[in-house]
Structures are given as structure tokens and as C-alpha cells.
Design a protein around this nucleic acid. Structure first.
Lengths: 204, 204
DNA sequence: GTCTATATACCGATAGAC
DNA sequence: GTCTATCGGTATATAGAC
């Protein structure tokens, strides 16, 4: 909450985050220079170093900022009434929309997974995903009591995220069409696949 | 085939690929310098520029090299006898093992998807994945004739790849254990989920 | 083919004026 | 708090000897 002021109030720090997060999401840590960020914000390089001791700290604070904003949205989409099947359908749909609407978050997440820094992944897992993943795991346990809930939770999240990750190459693969990138269609497919399996998928 | 000589015969070019591919897979295009590559190979920077006109060309040739070597392996795992269900089970298992055994290929693929360069993705889709993806799509069509085969093929591939992508963060998430990263367990889970859906997963 | 030496530009980071 | 100016180092890339 103390951190939230940087996201909602104006000021130089907020301006830096607003410009730097998309840059890091697009090109990664090594692909973005302090000069590039300073130019985008409209300040000098020295100003960046007044607010942050070095580039790495600036990057880490961008990551924190982008991820902290997402943790709350994630927790909201899990508070769903209804049967477990309805909860699954609603979770997949809302999660797909939430992830599809924030390319920067998705790209930063992918880059963090690629980078594999243990300390940062530990923080990411604890601060951003722990509560939500726990909820997904419990939903998985209710729906499939005899199955490994951890693996199932990863599968549920992964199905959605992979369809979004492959958006840029989809059009070049056999059968790929533009509407395959729409959240509603992806969510519907994933939900059907999860609930009925491949053999019954598309029936009734 | 003409390109294969660089992979199998000795020589300076092969040495460059052997050192540069892991470096690019680990740190990305911007995270690896010509100095770094030259030092790893044991030659001077000028030698790299004798073999390649610039860094980007060197990178692209590394990508081609790493991906060309994989296309053949991918095509082999789809030539499976048996019922469609057996074919699915065998494909998932072999695909999981193949992808799990080549971290560099997986990381380069992830980086290419992140980068999103249209020309390179077009080549990647056509030269590496077209035939194999077509095969997966047809298998999906056989198993789920009323379902969108393209979406289903993406889901099949994505389930496996996402479980491998999330290996580094798994241990920090609720329920994550070391054995969740074993190919056999991942393949078994994915196959069960695909064939039976979440509601029947883990039963019998 | 591979080297040393170098050109030129950009990098992260700092000093000190205002 | 933000600036200009600059430092030392490294980046990509090239020239020319061997």
C-alpha cells in the first residue's frame, strides 16, 4: 500500500515508471539504456541517478511496480460464487482478459522466467502469485481430487498464457486466424478443454 | 542439408556456433557482446567479423543452426503407430523429453517469441514448425473433430512448454516439488489432462 | 584466416553548478 | 531536484600486417 502512492500520484518517480516499464518489457534490461529512458521521460540521465542508485535498482523497482499493480487484480478474479465448474469457467475467462489486457506485465513475467534470478523469482512467487496460486490450487483440488493439484494449477495458468505468448507466430502456423487471438475464444477453448478433455471438446 | 556440414564437421564456424548459441540462449542478443563470444571461442573479434558481416547476422545464423537441428527431431516423434490415443500419449511423452533435453533451443524459441520480429517468426513457422504443427493439428482433428484444431494443437504444445518454462519458479510456488520437473511426470500429467479433462484427471 | 591496433559511438555513472 | 559536462570503460566494426 505504501508503494501504491507511486502508481497513483503524479511526480517524477511515477513518470519514470510509466516510461521505463514499457521499455524494459519491450527490449529487456540489456536492450534499454539509461539514455533511452531519460529521453522518454524527458529528463537528464543525472535525474534518473538522483532517484535510483543504479540501473539495476531502477529495473527492479519497475518490476516491483508492474507486478504489485497486478497482484490485486489477480486476487479479485478468484472470488467467484457458484459451482466449482462455474468458478473454473469464470476464473479462466477473467484471467485471460486480465493477462491479454496487459502485454507489459506478461512480457516482464516472461523475461523474469527466462532470466531465472533465484532471489527475484522467490519474491515474485511470494508477493505476487502465492495467494492466487493457492486459490487456483484449491480449485484444482476440488475439481480433480485424485490429481496433482500443483501440476494442474500450472496447466490452467499455462494454457491461457501460452495462447497469448504465441500470438505473434499464430498467423504463420497452419490454421491460424486472427480471431484465435481474441480473449473470449481463447477462454472458451481452454475452459472446454479443461472441463471435458480433448475427446469431448467441441461437443454439445 | 547443405547447412548440416556446419553442425557435423569441425572448423571455425562450427566452433563459433557451439559457443555462441548457449551464450545467446542464456543472455539474449543484447546481453552478449562480440568480445564475449570471441573469448569463448578462443579467437579475436576480427575473426568473427571475417566469418560474419555483423553481429546480427551471426545471431541469425545461430538461430537457424539451433532450429534446423531441431526440425528433424520433431518430425521423427510424430511418426507413431497405434490408436489416436496412443499416438497422443507417445507424442506428448517424446515431445516433452525432446524439449526438456534442449534448454538452449527452448530459450531461443522463447526469446524469438518475445522479440516478435515478423520476418524471423515467419521463417521459424515455415522451416521448423510447419510440417510438425500440421501433424499435431491432424491428430487433434482426429481426436476432437468438433473442436478448433489449431487452438487444440497450440494447447497441446503449450501445456508441455509451459511446464518446462516455469521450472525455475516452481519450487517457490505452493505444492511445487523437485519431481514436478521430471519429463515423465509432466508428460503423464499433460496426457491425462488432455485425454480425460480435469474432472476425470487422476482417476483409475 | 587470424591477428594487433584502432576508429567511433555508446554505455553506466559521477561532479559540481544552479 | 534537475541540469551540463565529463570520466573511464566497453560496444560494434574496420584497416592492415602476416
Amino acid at each position: 500500500m505504501a508503494r501504491a502512492k507511486f502508481s497513483t500520484s503524479p511526480g517524477a518517480l511515477n513518470a519514470i515508471f510509466r516510461e521505463a516499464i514499457p521499455l524494459f518489457a519491450q527490449s529487456g534490461f540489456d536492450g534499454v539504456s539509461m539514455r533511452h529512458i531519460a529521453k522518454a521521460v524527458g529528463v537528464s540521465i543525472a535525474t534518473l541517478y538522483y532517484h535510483f542508485p543504479d540501473k539495476q535498482t531502477l529495473y527492479l523497482r519497475c518490476i516491483e511496480e508492474a507486478f504489485a499493480n497486478k497482484a490485486q487484480g489477480l486476487s479479485e478474479i478468484l472470488a467467484i460464487p457458484g459451482t466449482p465448474e462455474q468458478q473454473l469457467q469464470q476464473f479462466i475467462y477473467r484471467f485471460t482478459c486480465l493477462m491479454a489486457s496487459d502485454t507489459h506485465f506478461r512480457r516482464l513475467l516472461q523475461r523474469e522466467l527466462l532470466d531465472g534470478d533465484e532471489t527475484r523469482l522467490r519474491v515474485l512467487a511470494k508477493e505476487v502469485f502465492q495467494t492466487q496460486f493457492q486459490g487456483i490450487t484449491e480449485l484444482a483440488k476440488t475439481l480433480a481430487p485424485n490429481c496433482d493439484a500443483h501440476l494442474m494449477a500450472i496447466s490452467m495458468v499455462g494454457l491461457v498464457l501460452f495462447h497469448l505468448e504465441t500470438t505473434p507466430i499464430r498467423q504463420f502456423l497452419p490454421g491460424g486466424r486472427a480471431e484465435h487471438n481474441e480473449s473470449e475464444l481463447i477462454a472458451k477453448h481452454v475452459t472446454q478443454l479443461l472441463l471435458k478433455g480433448i475427446l469431448q471438446c467441441g461437443n454439445d
